[in-house]
Computed example of a mutant assay.
Amino acid sequence: MLTAVATAVDEPLTITERDVPEPGPGEVLVKIIACGICHTDLDVLQGRWPIAKFPLVPGHEITGVVAATGPGVSFPAVGTTVGAQFLGDSCGHCDYCVRGDQILCPRKRITGIVFDGGYAEYAVLKAGFVTPLPEGLDPVAAAPLMCAGLTAFNSLRQGKITANSRVAVIGPGGVGALAVRYAVAMGARVAVIGRSRRSEAQAREFGAEKFIATQDTDPAEALKAWGGANLILNAAPSTEAATATLTGLAPDGWLVLCGYNEDPLILPTRTMVLNRLHVMINPSGSPHDTRDTLAFSAAHDILPEITKVGLRDANASLDAMAAGHAGNRSVIVFD
């Protein structure tokens, strides 16, 4: 099978042939249809994930068809179209796992970081961590829903938005664009915050009522003039961008980060105390969150804007992402 292998930090992917693996107990072999290229993949290759185990096949936005099942697996059956996500395994018995919060398991294992992921024609995955796709959902366009979509959708839920909540989304890129569409579908009023007005037309097309360009306007002051945001979702890979908006929260509001970098998050303590503000960094989601994300996406016809690429194009796509020129979400498609 054709495979892209990360051999070490700061080295390009090596395209090579490997034997098709066999699933063990509790595992399924998935013939991959598509795998999204996520910013986390770039972070792994640039050494920002010290838990990464090289050599490694990256990729955790996976869709495909179950080709074989290992001993003890009765679900999903061979022939089922499934998706696989960032969270690839957990211990199954800690308090978090038994509550359905496997993403918080201290012994969780991450797809494409500690075991091989989706930059290959086949992958062996844990049966309990793959999710059947809803009928009619395009598996190629749906691949980024397994991380970008899941993260956006679950971040909005963690922020406890309701109908008519004022939601501000920082970063109109892949995760942010999905967050805008999800929030609008949930009945929220949405503002989008970007550095320039380049993405304003698309944001308004997706249902945003307000666009704030930080090169022209202080985002926190603009949010205050809007009435204050009940939830600010930072989808930009910048902690500083989130810090700049925090005082624009309404009382009892939430700042949820699904994008960040190594800069510290600076909190205005007195403002937070007087207004009972909340801050959370959301790490993707658990299997039940994935099911909910896919069902909601199918019900509301929410799919990302994607660019299809081949496996041999993965290095070029990652280089474009590193340079800030990625455009639509790149998805590796296997014939």
Score class of each variant (00 low, 15 high):
176 G>P: 05
57 V>T: 11
14 T>E: 10
234 N>C: 10
289 D>R: 07
134 P>F: 14
141 A>M: 08
230 N>P: 11
308 K>P: 15
20 V>D: 05
220 A>N: 04
176 G>M: 00
157 R>Q: 13
327 G>N: 05
309 V>H: 05
207 G>Y: 01
271 T>Q: 15
275 N>T: 10
185 A>Q: 06
200 E>Y: 03
24 G>R: 00
106 P>F: 08
56 L>A: 11
254 W>I: 03
103 I>G: 12
112 G>F: 03
214 T>Y: 05
249 L>Q: 12
213 A>G: 08
148 A>C: 08
69 T>V: 14
58 P>G: 02
205 E>S: 08
46 Q>C: 13
62 I>D: 15
27 E>P: 00
153 F>D: 09
105 C>N: 11
278 H>L: 05
64 G>D: 04
191 A>Y: 03
84 A>L: 02
144 P>R: 00
37 I>Y: 00
71 P>C: 00
156 L>W: 05
315 N>K: 09
229 A>D: 05
233 L>S: 03
58 P>H: 01
149 G>F: 01
303 L>C: 05
78 V>R: 05
26 G>W: 00
65 V>A: 02
150 L>N: 08
19 D>P: 06
19 D>N: 15
271 T>S: 14
206 F>R: 10
105 C>V: 07
325 H>E: 12
240 E>I: 03
226 W>Y: 12
270 R>D: 11
85 Q>K: 15
5 V>A: 08
122 Y>P: 13
209 E>K: 14
279 V>W: 05
305 E>A: 13
135 E>G: 10
217 T>Q: 08
238 S>V: 02
139 P>R: 00
7 T>W: 15
114 V>G: 04
101 D>C: 15
